[in-house]
Amino acid sequence: MTCHQKRKIDEIRVEGHEELDAASLREHEEFTKVKNIATIEFGRYEIETWYFSPFPLEYNDCSKLFFCEFCDEIYRSGTLSMFEVDGKKNKVYGQNLCYWAKLFLDRKTLYSDVNLFLFYVLRECDNRGCYMVGYFSKEKHSEESYNLDCILTLPPYQRKGYGKFLIAFPYELSKKEGKVGTPERPLPDLGMLRYRGYWTHVLLDILKKLKGNISIKELSDMIAIKAEDILSTLQGLELIQYRKGQQVICPDPKVLDCHLKAAGRGGLEVDVSKSELLRQKIGVCIS
């Protein structure tokens, strides 16, 4: 699928507009070019929005919206906390979070039924309270092994390593469930770039410490990253060779050092010891 095709699908897959004809769709696109909400107040920040979001009609005359910050904590390490919100138990919160995210994600697809999703909200805490940094969502049951549906870091917190933390956390959840995971496809170009960076760091760190040989399947089981993602990343790093018709990982120390230097910082790490949820490797079926 080309980027152009993906863009057209994302434009059409807006709740309630699947059956629009070409003229109606153009009218809808023209209408949504203009932001309907200018700013939001969230904790200590007043944030200017970037895009239109289809809030209920009663909010059309509101130039600024105020959002609540509280839900269930499942992780705390230093000043960072992660909160889990079940879309079925907290439907209004889940829907509002989706509407709110649409103000900053141009291609986000909105779903009216949030019952099927879990939302993980990252917050930075101080003596005054906890302030939302960003969030990711995931389906409770994904046949494709998707461990992430949507991800967002708020503008005031971008370029601080939080995005990589939000990418890493779903993989820790996958480990807890005894599964391998991957983000929902298709990924936009920027999303693929960020994931490729995360996969690169994880794989290089392991291969740097490795003594002996390891297969892609063994790597996948160890780090909960899908084998196809591991293979494509290693191929991009030119760490795969074909010998006697088989794919072999060739972790030359000098090549690894070169890639690690080029990869830069790895971002904030998830400390599994700080979460009872992540420490317990239990397969849980959440209804």
Rank of each mutant, 00 (worst) to 15 (best):
A224N: 08
C3S: 09
P183N: 08
W199N: 09
K261L: 15
S81A: 14
D257N: 14
T233L: 03
E41K: 11
R26Q: 12
K6C: 06
E172F: 06
Y111E: 08
G191F: 11
G191W: 13
A263I: 12
T200M: 13
E84S: 14
A22Q: 12
I74Y: 11
G94E: 11
I223D: 09
L187M: 15
E238D: 06
W50H: 08
C130M: 02
L80D: 04
Y195L: 13
K108I: 11
A227F: 02
G94A: 15
K88D: 04
I286S: 03
G163P: 00
L97H: 02
Y111K: 01
P155D: 13
A22P: 01
G245R: 03
E19D: 13
K160N: 11
K211L: 06
R194C: 10
A23S: 12
R76K: 14
P183H: 10
W100P: 01
A38N: 02
D257G: 10
L25V: 01
C258F: 15
G181T: 11
P188K: 14
G197Q: 12
C62F: 05
K88T: 04
E84H: 14
L219K: 02
L260K: 15
T182F: 02
V133S: 10
D113C: 07
K254N: 10
F70Q: 15
V133I: 12
D221C: 07
T32A: 04
K64M: 00
Y146S: 14
M132W: 00
T182P: 00
Y59N: 07
S232F: 07
Y195T: 03
C3T: 10
K160G: 09
G245Y: 03
G283E: 13
G197N: 12
V34R: 07
L65K: 00
A227V: 07
E73Y: 03
G94M: 14
L122K: 05
K102Y: 07
D106L: 15
L204S: 08
G43F: 00
P155Y: 03
I282W: 04
P54S: 14
S112A: 06
K8D: 01
Y162L: 12
K208Q: 07
T39R: 03
I151F: 09
L190H: 11
L234K: 12
E143M: 13
T109W: 00
R7G: 00
I47H: 10
M1P: 04
R107F: 09
S275V: 01
T109F: 02
R185W: 06
D257Q: 15
D189F: 13
D257I: 08
T79M: 02
M132R: 02
D229N: 08
P183F: 03
E58T: 08
D21C: 14
R185D: 08
I240W: 00
H201R: 10
F55C: 01
L207T: 04
N96M: 14
K6I: 10
C285P: 04
L97E: 03
P251G: 03
G191M: 13
K160M: 13
Y198D: 00
E172N: 06
L166D: 01
K6N: 05
E218L: 11
M222D: 10
T79F: 03
Q246H: 02
L187T: 10
E228C: 05
A22C: 09
H4Y: 06
G264R: 14
Y131Q: 08
K164A: 08
E30R: 04
H4K: 07
F42G: 00
Y135C: 04
Y99Q: 05
P253S: 05
